[in-house]
Simulated scan of single mutants.
Amino acid sequence: MNLPTPPERALPDRLRRWQAVRVTDLPLELPGYEHVYSGKVRDLYAPVGDDGQVVPDRLLLVASNRLSAYDWMMSPEIPDKGAVLTRLSLWWFDQLADLVPNHVISTDVPAAVAGRAVLVRKLEMLKVEAIARAYLTGGGLEEYRATGAVCGVVLPEGLEDGSRLPEPVFTPTTKAPVGEHDLPMSPAEVEAELGAEVAAEVSRLTRAILARGNEIAAERGILIADTKVEFGVSPDGSGGLVLADEVLTPDSSRFWPAAAWQPGRTQPSYDKQFVRDWLTSPESGWDRHAGGPPPELPARIVEQTRAKYVEAYELLTGERF
């Protein structure tokens, strides 16, 4: 569903420093909701009760059409991206329900954000980016080439770009402020942040989510190379870990066509790696290390990116978008 673009609004300071070009939808005016936060691609709103007070244990999570790469917000936005991420996350939450509870309460949301928003439980989010890898590529490959390990996990010798790992490994990073780089964390650093028991459970669940994802996706012609998930806990400390934000989407994961998988080279993908590859190609003319903002995405790159997101959704779910 394509929604009309709201009037341009001032960009919050925390986003302005990594903005490539103007953004037009921060924040929306949603009757009955109060804007509380905007991240790279998602906006949070708090429901307001009939008494005018914010409902303390609920949040409206809105997925925008924004796309970020290399810590820059791209322009223009990717049509329907927010709806794809929302619908795919809801589908995956169902597939993972026996592994871990999730934060979704309802999809009954304001009409202005219908299809790309969910009402969720408000959680205390863990200050660790939970990442698991089933295949070696990206930043993990760079670290492996330098040290033979990723986040303290020693890997076999002789691995290449795209090599399948013997089993999924947990390779967490810091959760840096918007506009700054996440940094790899060792097991000891994760334990110091979360405590040994919670750290072990985060590692177990993250690897289990990726393993389950690959069991399902492989039957549909997709390999999930790696993924990032978010966990939270109830503010009162009751219950265990809760899966939050998004899960196993083209934004949080690397999706590869199984039939084209070939270790030793960059893999074709269904995710935003497609945009990263264009940005670092001679065609874009952009030097990501020079400090300046990237160029606008050409119309064909925008169209092809949308098509890749939709194709991944349709292959995985078996549903037409």
Rank of each mutant, 00 (worst) to 15 (best):
P168V: 05
A225N: 06
A69N: 07
N214S: 11
V150Q: 01
T249N: 10
D245L: 04
I224R: 00
K127D: 15
T86R: 07
S203A: 15
K81N: 10
H181I: 10
L210E: 03
G213C: 07
A225S: 12
E296N: 03
T305P: 01
T206F: 08
S253I: 04
V62A: 12
P293Q: 01
G237W: 02
T227W: 04
D236C: 00
A20G: 15
R87N: 13
T174I: 09
G82N: 10
F321G: 04
A63C: 14
W261D: 08
S89C: 08
R116D: 14
G221W: 09
L223M: 09
E219L: 10
I209E: 06
S64C: 02
K228W: 14
L136P: 08
I131Y: 06
V310E: 10
P166V: 02
P282V: 00
G49S: 15
N214R: 10
E283G: 00
L99K: 03
W256F: 10
S89R: 02
L159C: 06
D277W: 01
I131F: 08
D94S: 10
H181S: 14
V41F: 12
L28S: 08
H103G: 08
D271S: 06
D226G: 02
L123W: 01
L61V: 12
E197P: 05
P168L: 03
E142I: 13
P250A: 10
R121C: 09
E167T: 06
A312S: 09
P166R: 09
R220A: 03
P156E: 01
V36K: 11
E311S: 11
L165D: 04
L223F: 15
L297R: 00
L3K: 12
Y313L: 08
A299V: 04
L123H: 02
L61T: 11
F231N: 09
A244M: 14
P76H: 03
G115P: 12
E215H: 03
T5M: 10
A132E: 13
S269G: 07
A188R: 02
P6Y: 04
T174S: 15
L59V: 05
G292V: 00
R58Q: 15
E167N: 12
T305K: 02
E143Y: 04
L67Y: 05
E160Y: 04
K122R: 15
P76R: 06
G140A: 08
A217M: 09
E319D: 13
I105A: 11
D287R: 00
P268T: 08
S203T: 04
R66S: 11
V21P: 04
P298C: 05
Q304N: 11
D287G: 03
D57M: 11
Q262D: 07
H103F: 03
Y313G: 02
A83R: 15
E319I: 05
L165G: 03
T24F: 15
G239S: 11
R276P: 00
V229K: 01
D80P: 02
A260W: 10
G52F: 13
P4W: 12
W72E: 00
R22Q: 15
I301R: 02
L155T: 06
L61S: 06
G162Y: 03
P12R: 06
V153I: 13
P294N: 00
P7C: 11
E311R: 09
A258G: 01
E201K: 05
A258K: 06
N214I: 08
E191L: 07
S234V: 04
S38C: 13
